[in-house]
Design a binder for these strands. Sequence first.
DNA 1: CGGCTGATTGAGGCTCGTCAAATGTCGTGG
DNA 2: CCACGACATTTGACGAGCCTCAATCAGCCG
Lengths: 216, 216
Amino acid sequence: MLSPIRAKSFDTDFALDGVLGMPATCLRLSRDEEIFGEGEDADYVYQVVSGAVRTYRILRDGRRQIDEFHFAGDYFGLEMGATHRVTAEALTDATVRMVRRGALSDLAAQRGDAARAIFRLTAEGLQRSQDHVLMLGRRSAQERVVGLLLDIAQRTRAEAELDVPMGRQDMADYLGLTIETVSRTLTALQDEGLIALPSVRHVVLKDRRSLERMTA
Amino acid sequence: MLSPIRAKSFDTDFALDGVLGMPATCLRLSRDEEIFGEGEDADYVYQVVSGAVRTYRILRDGRRQIDEFHFAGDYFGLEMGATHRVTAEALTDATVRMVRRGALSDLAAQRGDAARAIFRLTAEGLQRSQDHVLMLGRRSAQERVVGLLLDIAQRTRAEAELDVPMGRQDMADYLGLTIETVSRTLTALQDEGLIALPSVRHVVLKDRRSLERMTA
DNA sequence: CGGCTGATTGAGGCTCGTCAAATGTCGTGG
DNA sequence: CCACGACATTTGACGAGCCTCAATCAGCCG
């Protein structure tokens, strides 16, 4: 349901990898470790090397909305503005590369392809966010859960069996649901024969055609 | 609740107005007239001159999600990719300027400030979309309606009394609610003394402080 | 003054949230 | 290897919030 950004971003990756690949500092993170916080100065841009990352915001009363999950190869933290608008944390043990924002804008000023690559990443983020809006505004709990599973499958290049790197609470906070509704929805999908749940963090898509029809 | 993009985009407006101001074709539209459709070739970029515009997507079964409302000065239709991902229609009678996408990318290639301006517009769109996600994922009907009213007030530079340019169905489809819930919520806000509704498309913010506290 | 469209109000139902309890999972230490 | 404890997930019962369907009302234009 969410847009297949990876297929389209090969040259993006290529253009930026020249930058982010070389002088980048690598961070090793353990699960739930914070990478940056909402409101902090945005000095760096990041790329997931391995593992996965969540970015989120919280309301005063504690309600949390996960903005996006970031998988290997994805960039994050490249919002405009001097400060981060979201908090970023490792979803699992992970390693990320970071580049100084200044280095990136220097590069963008020198090389048009790099500037275009950064622009494209931002535009793809916008598309993903718009898909997210559609999901939250107009889809049922079941459609949302299915949409997330298919999105994870696509972004992690999984076939039938997929590895869900986040817990139920993370899924709920991404989908605008509660943990109980996510759990119930997954067992309902299992009962309907659409998926199997060999373990909590593994899902088998047993009828991908039907699942995809639900999210169209 | 939504981000105050206008305050930050003065130089953006300035940089692009040089382009969009001169060789632009102007379209006069009457209410509900389509500007472009989802899936059509994205040949132009647009700016609202007067009136307002909605962009939206619809699911197969007719559910509609309004992506964004665009007011005077706002740009729209500048997604990457060859085709439009949303449909754009005039919310009211409106006039919009349009520039060929090719002209814009030529300019961006020549002038760094123009490229940066376009990038900034996209990044601001992303921020707005993220705010929308938070609203749809984690806010109650009342909080959503209040958020929209305050957003309209801000973007149209209204003080206490504001002009709501869209009907209840548009509000509902932006907020992920039904028309009845929007209507009931507005009368509830009126009963609580937080707003007044002198007419269907006019709202008076009677207690802005309380309203703002609801959306923080 | 009708007639049309859009908004409001009402009654009832369904989906999802809340609260609570049971069950499962995993790491740690015996 | 097993037992234990901490934590995550699942399940259940119930309620709230929002949706659906339907009727009424308000505004607007001929």
